[in-house]
Design a binder for these strands. Structure first.
Length: 520
RNA sequence: GGCCCUAUCGUCUAACGGUUAGGACACCAGAUUUUCAAUCUGACAAUCAGGGUUCGAUUCCCUGUAGGGUCACCA
C-alpha cells in the first residue's frame, strides 16, 4: 500500500502588466486565491511580461498594489519592499521575490525557455519558419474565404537541415513554430465546463517563439505551469482555445499537464464583453469612487459563483470556507453596478465610524474641505485638530447610512465644514408657504434657538419639535429651518445638524436665510 | 466563415426527473419621516423555440435560434 500524501495543490494568477487591474482579472485572481486557500495549497503570482512593447513596470506595481488593497495575498511571487505613498503610486519602490520557484517574471526566465525551445527543435517538435507575415496573412484570408479553419499551411514544416541553414545564412527572418500532430483530438476535462475536445487541425502549427530568446505566450505559459508545478490552472474562458496548444507542447515534452478550469467571462451591459480598455472596469476607478475592498470582493465572488444557499454577504474568510469550483456558473455574467452599490452601502453601514472617518478623510482633503494632516498640524493647535476630527466623525456618523460610495461624502457634509453656504432662495419654501410665512417661520426658529441654554441634540430636538407641532404642518417650521442650516434639499435631521453646527452658526445661517428672502 | 462554449424574472442566481419555479439587486406601492436615506411590509417579473425520451421535463437527447469566446511574429 502506498502512503503517498495527496499532492499539494498550486494555483497561479498570471497577469500581464499591460494595463490596470480590471474586474475580470481580479475575479481570476480571487478564484485562484480562494481555491488554493480552501485546499490549503499555494497561490502564486507570476508576471507574464514577455511582450516587451506593452509590459510596463508601473502596471506591474499597480497590479501588486491592487491585489494588496483587495486583501488577496500570494505565497510566492514578486512583492514590493518599499515605497507606498498612495495605493497607486508607482514611484520609489523595488521588488523582490518570495518563494523558491522563481524568478516569477517571465522576462527573467529567458534561459529556461531557451533550453526547452532548443530541445524541441532538436527533437523535431518545433521548426524554423521563414514565411513572411504577409504570406501567412494571405493564406489565412484565403482559407477563411473557402470556409476552412485558417491554419498555417506553409512548407517550412518540411525544410531540410541544409535548406534551413542556407536561409539563415542568407539572413532570412524566421520564427519558431510548433509541429502539431495532424488530425488528433486533444481532449481535457475542464473542472467548470466538463469535457472539451478540440482537433489539432483547427489550429495547426502555431508560432511559439520569435527566436530562441523571445518566446511567446503559449509556450512560456505551458513551460512555466510545468516548471512551477502548477496543479490547477483557473483562468478566463478566453483561454480555452489556448489550452489544447499548451497541452500539445507539454505532451511533446513528455510531461503531464495541469488540471484546467475555465471561467465564463464577465459581460458588460447588453451582454457585451467587458473590455480591458473600458475605464469603468478598471479597479482604480472603483477605488477613486470610494468602493470598499470588502464590497468588491463580495461582489466579484458572486459574479458567476454562488454557495448554493441563500447567504450572499460574505467576508473573505467565509468565502474561503464555502468556496467550491463546482458551483461556478457555465455562462457569462453581466456586471450589475446597482448591486455593487447596494453591497458597498451595506459594508459602509457596517463599518465602525472611526474607521469610516479615516477612509473618508482623503476624499475630504481632495475636495478641499479639510487640509492634509501635515498642514493641519502646522496651522492649528492639537486641540483644534481634535475638535475638527470630532466634528467630522460626528458628521460622518449622520451620513453613514445614506452613503453608497465614499466619494459622495464631501458634497453631503460640506455645509458643516464650510463657513459659507450657497443655495437658491426658493429652496426655503415648503409646499405653498408665502415669503412672509417663511420669514416668520425662520424668525420663530431664531427665537427658540436663542433660548436654548444647553445646545445639544436632544434638547434642540425636543424644543424644536414641540414648536413644530403647533404649526398646521410640522414642515412649515422644520423645512425652512433645515434648509437654512444646510442649504440642501435633503440632509440628515435638523436637530443633529444644529448640534454639529453650534448655536452661533445656526443663528447666522437663519439670519442669512431671512435676508435672502427679504432682499432677494 | 471554421472550431469551442452557453441559454431560468430587466440583472445575479436556486431548484436528486415530481416545488404554487425560491432568493437577491433594480423597479413599483404602502408604513415610517419636514427632506433624503436607512428600515419594515407588499406587488410586478423567468424556464429561447420546436421536436423527441418519460406516467411526468427547467432538468436528459436532437434540431433550430440567439449570445459569447477564439482563429497574432498579443497575453
Amino acid at each position: 500500500m502506498t502512503t503517498n500524501e495527496p499532492e499539494k495543490i498550486i494555483t497561479r494568477f498570471a497577469p500581464s502588466p499591460t494595463g490596470p487591474a480590471h474586474i475580470g482579472s481580479i475575479r481570476t485572481a480571487l478564484f485562484n486565491y480562494l481555491f488554493s486557500h480552501k485546499l490549503r495549497g499555494i497561490f502564486m503570482l507570476r508576471i507574464e511580461d514577455t511582450d516587451k512593447e506593452r509590459s510596463k513596470s508601473e502596471w506591474e506595481h499597480m497590479l501588486l498594489k491592487s491585489l494588496e488593497w483587495l486583501g488577496i495575498s500570494w505565497d510566492e511571487g514578486p512583492i514590493i519592499v518599499e515605497g507606498q505613498e498612495s495605493i497607486f503610486d508607482s514611484d520609489n519602490y523595488s521588488i523582490r521575490y518570495k518563494g523558491n520557484r522563481g524568478p516569477y517574471r517571465q522576462s527573467e526566465r529567458t534561459q529556461i525557455y531557451k533550453k526547452y525551445l532548443q530541445k524541441m527543435i532538436d527533437e523535431g517538435h518545433a521548426y524554423y519558419c521563414f514565411c513572411t507575415k504577409e504570406e501567412v496573412e494571405a493564406q489565412k484570408s484565403y482559407l477563411m474565404s473557402i470556409g476552412e479553419s485558417p491554419v498555417y499551411k506553409g512548407n517550412c514544416r518540411n525544410l531540410t537541415k541544409e535548406e534551413i541553414s542556407e536561409k539563415i545564412s542568407q539572413g532570412k527572418r524566421s520564427v519558431i513554430r510548433f509541429r502539431t500532430s495532424e488530425n488528433q483530438n486533444i481532449a481535457f476535462d475542464d473542472m467548470i465546463k466538463g469535457k472539451i475536445s478540440i482537433n489539432t487541425e483547427t489550429f495547426g502549427d502555431f508560432v511559439i517563439a520569435k527566436d530562441l530568446e523571445t518566446p511567446l505566450f503559449n509556450f512560456t505559459c505551458a513551460i512555466d505551469d510545468h516548471e512551477m508545478n502548477i496543479t490547477h490552472v483557473i483562468r478566463g474562458e478566453d483561454h480555452v482555445s489556448n489550452t489544447p496548444k499548451q497541452i500539445a507542447i507539454l505532451n511533446a515534452l513528455g510531461v503531464k499537464h495541469p488540471i484546467y478550469a475555465h471561467m465564463p467571462l464577465i459581460l458588460g451591459q447588453g451582454k457585451k464583453k467587458l473590455s480591458k480598455r473600458d475605464a469603468e472596469t478598471s479597479l482604480e476607478e472603483y477605488v477613486k469612487d470610494g468602493y470598499l475592498p470588502e464590497a468588491i470582493i463580495n461582489f466579484v465572488a458572486f459574479l458567476g459563483w454562488n454557495p448554493g444557499t441563500e447567504k450572499e454577504i460574505y467576508s473573505m474568510e467565509e468565502l474561503i470556507t464555502d468556496f467550491s469550483i463546482e458551483k461556478i456558473q457555465k455562462s457569462g455574467a453581466v456586471f450589475n453596478p446597482e448591486k455593487l452599490d447596494w453591497l458597498n452601502g451595506l459594508y459602509i453601514r457596517k463599518k465602525p465610524v472611526t474607521e469610516l472617518t479615516n477612509l473618508c478623510i482623503p476624499f475630504l482633503i481632495n475636495a478641499g474641505l479639510i487640509k492634509k494632516h501635515t498642514e493641519l498640524s502646522f496651522l492649528t493647535t492639537d486641540t483644534e485638530q481634535i475638535v475638527t476630527m470630532n466634528k467630522i466623525e460626528k458628521a460622518i456618523l449622520l451620513y453613514q447610512e445614506r452613503l453608497k460610495k465614499l466619494s459622495e461624502i464631501p458634497e453631503l457634509i460640506d455645509f458643516i465644514l464650510k463657513d459659507e453656504i450657497n443655495y437658491e432662495k426658493d429652496l426655503l419654501k415648503w409646499k405653498n408657504m408665502t415669503d412672509n410665512e417663511i420669514v416668520l417661520s425662520l424668525e420663530n426658529s431664531i427665537k427658540i434657538i436663542k433660548d436654548i441654554e444647553d445646545f445639544e441634540k436632544n434638547v434642540i430636538e425636543k424644543v424644536i419639535f414641540e414648536e413644530a407641532e403647533k404649526m398646521p404642518n410640522r414642515g412649515n417650521l422644520l423645512w425652512p429651518f433645515r434648509v437654512a442650516l444646510t442649504g440642501k434639499q435633503s440632509s440628515a435631521g435638523p436637530a443633529e445638524i444644529a448640534d454639529l453646527l453650534g448655536k452661533e452658526k445656526c443663528l447666522d445661517r437663519l439670519e442669512l436665510a431671512i435676508k435672502k428672502i427679504k432682499y432677494a
